[in-house]
């Protein structure tokens, strides 16, 4: 067929309907900000009831992860994410959603190769690259300290 490939690709790019950038970004800002503010609220609350600060630092993300897992299970996290976009993707709750959602889906392939193996299909890269970069930082930090 004699349609020019380059021309066609450019035409399609121009033709394609774009995501509503301003609305999407505003929503992401709003929802992301609210989740972080709620986390701050939790932080203050845990301190207020007398939990030590070092524990609270870990307890807050754990609570958020629990809430995200629960809302993913009952099926509202994805509805929220449709509106919030990156606002629900970037906070730690998005990480939890990425762990729980494939696990729920792949229950049909069994508890070992389904749930066990698929749990980190989406969130795995975050841990891999996070750990790798932290080790690189650790080695450099150690090396600088030695000399």
């Amino acid at each position: 067929m004699d349609i020019n490939e380059k021309e066609y690709k450019e035409y399609c790019k121009k033709h394609a309907k774009h995501s509503p950038l301003i609305k999407d970004t505003l929503m992401a800002f709003l929802f992301g900000g609210l989740i972080c503010m709620a986390a701050e609220g939790l932080f203050e609350f845990y301190l207020y009831i007398g939990i030590a600060k070092e524990i609270v630092k870990t307890l807050v993300p754990i609570t958020l992860i629990f809430l995200s897992a629960l809302t993913t299970g009952i099926g509202i996290y994805d509805d929220l994410a449709k509106i919030a976009g990156a606002g629900t993707l970037v906070p730690i709750t998005g990480f939890a959603n990425a762990v729980v959602s494939p696990a729920i889906d792949d229950k049909s392939e069994g508890m070992i190769m389904g749930v066990g193996a698929k749990m980190f299909t989406i969130a795995g890269p975050v841990i891999v690259y996070g750990v790798l970069s932290s080790v690189i930082y650790g080695l450099i930090y150690w090396f600088v300290g030695v000399i």
Binding site: Y77, L80, A81, G85, L89, S101, P102
Partner: peptide
């Protein structure tokens, strides 16, 4: 694509 309960746009 993604799991059914995955939050994506």
């Amino acid at each position: 694509r993604f799991p059914l309960e995955y939050g994506g746009q």
